[in-house]
């Protein structure tokens, strides 16, 4: 069965389910506003002392923050609920039923849930990015916008891969909820461009947990700081991450021993 159809079918069901809980919408809105406000205060604090943070202007940093919010929204709408449900089903033995279905198990696990109201963050992220870009002095060219779209899509995929690789560890260790929380903590480091961090941390955030490719690179594309080579590298890293995720998943399924064993 077609993967997109499978996803849409589940998302429709998920959306129908979520819309019933309107209070979640308001909670999500409040949550987004608080996080936006704290983010803005942090940027304001930094720029009350200096005009430039490791080569990034105030508006460019706002772009980074906007992308961070946008990707966080995508992740919390589409990825995280599925990862948590998967970890739960592994613990409860209900993963048997995922494996029994005649569709790809990784695909099915990745699309079963949708946290509709988290899309608020996606909207907030887009607004912040638009606002920030309008404040950048040099105008953003069309190729830069295209590069941004490619980079931000890669970013979303990279985040999906990071979460899924950790999730696949549940095949072996069952309880990996805490590891997912750890990932969320690391993700917070992406609020700032990785270039402001000291060398060791920058390297970690580039090659171990590829947040640099997920968040900083899309921001660089809008801030006219991105080279073509870096964009190509981002696409390659995304491909490699997808491959690693796939291998981790397949190995996991092969070693799956069920909950009753």
């Amino acid at each position: 069965m077609n993967g997109i159809r499978l996803a849409i079918m589940h998302w429709k069901v998920g959306a129908m389910h979520e819309v019933q809980y309107r209070v979640n919408f308001f909670l999500q809105l409040i949550d987004s506003v608080i996080r936006l406000a704290t983010g803005l205060i942090a940027i304001w604090l930094v720029f009350s002392h200096t005009d430039d943070l490791a080569g990034w202007s105030r508006h460019e940093l706002l772009v980074v923050m906007g992308i961070h919010i946008l990707l966080s929204g995508i992740n919390r709408t589409f990825v995280e609920p599925n990862v948590f449900q998967f970890i739960y089903t592994i613990g409860e033995g209900e993963f048997d039923y995922v494996l029994a279905r005649p569709v790809d198990s990784q695909l099915l696990v990745s699309v079963r849930n949708l946290r509709f109201w988290q899309l608020v963050d996606v909207v907030v992220g887009v607004v912040v990015i638009g606002w920030a870009v309008s404040g950048i002095v040099e105008t953003t060219s069309l190729p830069e916008v295209l590069a941004f779209l490619v980079a931000v899509s890669c970013g979303a995929v990279i985040l999906y891969c990071m979460w899924m690789v950790v999730a696949a560890a549940a095949f072996k260790w069952i309880r990996v909820d805490d590891t997912v929380q750890l990932l969320n903590g690391l993700f917070q480091a992406g609020r700032w461009p990785v270039t402001i961090y000291p060398g060791w941390l920058r390297l970690t955030l580039t090659f171990v947990v590829p947040l640099a490719f997920a968040i900083t690179v899309p921001a660089e594309s809008l801030a006219s700081k991105l080279s073509g080579g870096m964009l190509v590298l981002t696409v390659i890293v995304t491909g490699v991450m997808l491959l690693i995720t796939r291998v981790a998943w397949q190995r996991g399924v092969r070693n799956y021993s069920g909950a009753s064993a």
Partner: peptide, 22 residues
């Protein structure tokens, strides 16, 4: 054990199953 969607009416679960099994 339960393999159906917990919060959905049975008919919706059946429909989902129909689609997955083509």
């Amino acid at each position: 054990r339960n393999s159906l969607q917990w919060d959905l009416p049975v008919a919706d679960s059946l429909e989902l199953r129909r689609a997955i099994y083509e």
